[in-house]
Amino acid sequence: MERLLLVAGLTALIHLINTVIYAVRVAGVRTGRPATAMSIFNVVFLLSSTANMIQGPLMATIVEGTILAAGTLAAREQALAGLAQHIRLVLAAATLGTLLGFLGQRAFAHFFAAGVALFEQVGGSVPRLVCLLLCRPRWAGQLARRHALPYPPAVRPHDPPGRLPRGFLALNVLVTGIFTTGVLSALYAGALYPDYRASATMLASLVNGIAQVLFATVVDPTAARLTDHALQGQRPFADVQRMAFHLAATRLAGTVLAQFIFLPAAYLIRFVAVLIT
């Protein structure tokens, strides 16, 4: 159980950080330095990458333990049912992490805007910036507040998407749902058919690859275009705030969607694994 809770905690952290990227766009436009804001975010993203490297193998060991513990048919069915509940707990942790990122959008935008101001003060050195935040956090906070720009009112939950394309918001729900459950569904497919679990696990990259194509060709370019238009003065800053709000909201909906597509995706992966072997 401790291992499962650790996996859930790491999953929540990963999805929290992945949701924060929308606040980075807001901070980048507000400060006029989107590249610097993204560079600072990459330092934070190292936490997500490290958590992902730990979370994946830990989840795999939980699945392997389920496979090895299942002796009789009845025991196997009971073990699979328990594994499914464990995976749903991990998916719920992904929703929780995304929710925290969604609720903290404005605070994170302030954080990265302040980070840009501090980055300029320390001469563009990330190691020096990290040392400043760790060794002199109070002084760093005062300096950041002195140089950070004030923010307009935050987007409210009932604000409509406005001029944002509805299609890419809907697609963000689907892409997030696939990303959230892709590896977990593949692991569960391997537990359903242990003889083909290596093939099933490798198919996770194919599933996530489809989502990556949709993200890289539709979602991200549209968000980048809206951000560029705001930087060039063709759109108001409020549109970027609205975009970040609704992207985070649709990402949250995507993690909920993952709960519904988890089992169908697992059975589909199992079918393909059997088909190609």
Rank of each mutant, 00 (worst) to 15 (best):
E2H: 14
V7D: 05
L13E: 01
I14Q: 01
R25H: 12
R25L: 08
A27D: 03
V29I: 11
R33G: 00
P34Q: 08
P34M: 07
A35V: 13
T36I: 14
M38S: 15
N42P: 00
N42K: 09
N42I: 03
V44D: 06
S48H: 10
S49V: 14
T50K: 03
N52C: 03
N52T: 14
M53S: 14
M59H: 13
A60S: 14
A60D: 13
T61M: 04
T61A: 09
G82T: 07
G82H: 11
A84Y: 04
H86F: 03
I87L: 11
L89S: 08
V90H: 02
L91P: 04
A94Y: 06
L96Y: 10
L96M: 12
L103P: 01
A107N: 09
A107I: 13
F111M: 09
A113W: 03
A114T: 05
F119C: 07
F119S: 09
F119G: 01
Q121S: 15
V126A: 12
R128L: 07
L129H: 14
L132Q: 02
L133T: 02
L134W: 03
C135A: 06
P137S: 04
P137D: 04
L143V: 10
R145W: 02
L149H: 10
Y151I: 00
H158Y: 01
R163W: 01
F168S: 08
F168V: 11
A170M: 08
T180I: 04
S185F: 13
A186E: 06
A186W: 11
L187S: 10
G190L: 11
G190N: 09
A191Y: 08
S199P: 07
L206W: 09
N208F: 06
Q212A: 15
Q212H: 10
V213I: 15
L214W: 11
T222S: 10
T222H: 06
A223C: 00
A224M: 06
T227D: 02
A230P: 02
A230G: 06
L231Q: 10
Q232I: 04
G233Q: 03
P236S: 04
A238G: 00
R242C: 05
M243S: 02
M243V: 00
L247N: 01
A249T: 07
G254C: 07
Q259H: 15
F260M: 02
L268M: 10
I269P: 04
R270Q: 15
V274L: 13
L275V: 07
I276G: 05
